[in-house]
Design a protein around this nucleic acid. Structure first.
Length: 504
RNA sequence: GACCCGGUAGCUCAGUCGGUAGAGCAUGCGGCUUUUAACCGCCAGGUCGUGGGUUCGAUUCCCACCCGGGUCACCA
């Protein structure tokens, strides 16, 4: 998009001069707003005439009829019609009205009344231009059909809507409502954890050693210290240090960064919730996750309902979200899906043949547990529709989880799935520093062998653990994906205000 | 990273089997003092993503690149 002034932009700039000739400054310092558009209907009630209102907002529709003009003013509460009549506002103000454009930010004052067609309207007596719009916002025209708003020639280019989210938001109230719902969801999650005595903390984004997950990091450089720093790929190791320190229930909501490709479920920076609770095991955490999800869904449902956006998305599905969520054991579920008595009894050749049929790639390079994991993803995970806990993962797939009591081949780990996607991942956390050191060393060897996602030995973390780390349960929840699930949104870019994109 | 699709006016799109492009809305001008996808009339508006190539001539065909989307790979 060029910044050269085309005829449209030029015309708006010329209006600045015309306004100056009328003695009007096109950019104000403030306005004494006393009501919102959404209140007007109630203020007028059934009467033909109502009280004077002071409103501010953006001109979202404009219809000039010579010596009268109709417009709609949009503000955070909704929109209301404005009626400008030359005999009422006066010559000067009407001249200003004639210079109004779609998108201008204005303040108005005047009494409410009802038009011939019954619409609640402000009979504008006083008009203030608060910010002249010098660039046309991509408003579509709207009409009401059977009570529903139909938008014509709307701003539809997904790329531009993401790049210019300010314009997307300005012309699409329902997009504002969606992001409002996201904010309410986060608030509800904070409230849920705070009520349980959790402490919200902040841990480093810039780390000299990254860990807590397997992912390629972003690297940056600290000039004064002359050293490389990594953007965190997980919060986990710092939060668990805090449990050692005596903060027994901690959580953090923040961005993690992973240097990977983008697609409909991946953005290089994304919002992660992690929470850790001393003396809890994964069973306790399962209950926490279930209650947290229900609380989050309630907040999303309430916010969307308030905006008139009730739908059939999962947040509105009482049956799905009532709990308790079904539980499914990893090994028996896989055995059942493969129609065998015990998947662990299958030979390597049988597993590979099954993987072949499932369309798994690079089968030759995969270990037995990885093959089984691929089969699990293909045959089980992708078919899970309603929120379901998958419990007790094989040890090889869960390097950070404690062995399962009574069956050391498994770990005390669960993941929550819905609509075929992972929503949460949790364990009874490993708190044995000797075991932890061995696992770090395995990672270090992988890293030395060229594995870009492996991490090194975090000596400081081991030192913390050696001081004595209480047993604890820990959970990670990707909030972008949780919100996507609850709202039925297909693309992560549609739930992130400013998704990562190449520059134009 | 591979493959497929797309990029034309401010917005939404059409089109040119190769002869420098159209519509609706928006903008500008004129008319209209209760309209609501307001209406009526007139005008203007485009390096057809960028750079090369073929050609008398390229927005159209070819190549490369840029940006986006989709599928796959990757993402324990």
């Amino acid at each position: 998009m060029s910044d050269e002034l085309n005829y449209v932009l030029q015309a708006r700039r010329e209006k600045i001069a015309a306004l100056a000739a009328l003695g009007v400054v096109p950019f104000a310092y403030g306005f004494d707003r006393q009501q919102f558009a959404g209140q007007c209907a109630a203020l007028l009630g059934d009467a033909a005439d109502g009280p004077v209102v002071h409103l501010a907002g953006r001109v979202v529709a404009l219809r000039a009829h010579g010596k009268t003009t109709f417009a709609h003013l949009g503000d955070p509460s909704g929109r209301v019609q404005l009626y400008f009549k030359r005999d009422v506002v006066g010559e000067i103000a009407y001249a200003v009205c004639d210079l109004l454009d779609l998108g201008d930010v204005i303040g108005v004052r005047g009494p409410l009344f009802r038009t011939r067609t019954g619409e609640v309207t402000v009979r504008v007596e006083h008009l203030e231009l608060l910010a002249k719009s010098l660039r046309p916002l991509p408003f579509g025209k709207e009409e009401e059909v059977d009570g529903k708003v139909v938008r014509h020639a709307a701003f539809a280019d997904g790329e531009q809507r993401s790049r210019q989210r300010y314009a997307d938001l300005a012309v699409h109230p329902e997009v504002r409502a969606l992001f409002t719902a996201r904010s309410r969801m986060t608030t509800a999650i904070r409230g849920f954890l705070d009520a349980l005595g959790y402490l919200e903390v902040e841990t480093p984004v810039l780390q000299s050693m990254y860990g807590g997950a397997a992912a390629k990091p972003f690297v940056t450089q600290h000039n004064a210290l002359d050293m490389p720093l990594f953007l965190r790929i997980a919060d986990e190791l710092y939060l668990k240090r805090l449990v050692v320190g005596g903060f027994e229930r901690v959580y953090e909501i923040g961005h993690d960064f992973r240097n990977e490709g983008t697609d409909r479920t991946h953005n290089p920076e994304f919002t992660m919730l992690e929470f850790y609770e001393a003396y809890a095991d994964y069973t306790t955490m399962m209950g926490r996750v279930e209650a947290l999800l229900i609380a989050a869904a309630g907040a999303v449902r309430d916010a969307l309902t308030a905006a008139g956006l009730a739908s059939d998305a999962p947040a509105f599905d009482a049956a799905v979200l009532a709990g308790p969520f079904p539980r499914m054991e990893w090994l028996p579920a896989l055995s059942q899906a493969l129609h065998v008595a015990d998947v662990t009894a299958m030979t390597d050749a049988e597993l590979k043949a099954a993987a072949e049929r499932a369309g798994v790639h690079n089968i030759a390079t995969l270990s037995r547990p990885k093959l089984m994991d691929e089969l699990f993803q293909h045959h089980v995970e992708s078919h899970i529709e309603r929120p379901t806990f998958v419990v007790d993962y094989p040890k090889e797939l869960s390097p950070l989880a404690k062995p399962k009591r009574g069956n050391p081949a498994l770990t005390e780990r669960f993941e929550l799935f819905a609509r075929g996607k992972e929503l949460a991942n949790a364990f009874s956390e490993l708190n044995d520093p000797l075991d932890q050191r061995q696992r770090f060393e395995v990672q270090a060897r992988l890293k030395a062998a060229g594995d870009e996602e492996a991490t090194g030995v975090d000596e400081d973390y081991l030192r913390a653990m050696e001081y004595g780390m209480p047993p604890m349960g820990g959970v990670g929840v990707g909030l972008d994906r949780l919100f996507m699930y609850l709202t039925g949104t297909a693309h992560i870019r549609d739930v992130i205000l400013f998704p990562t994109m190449r520059p134009e």
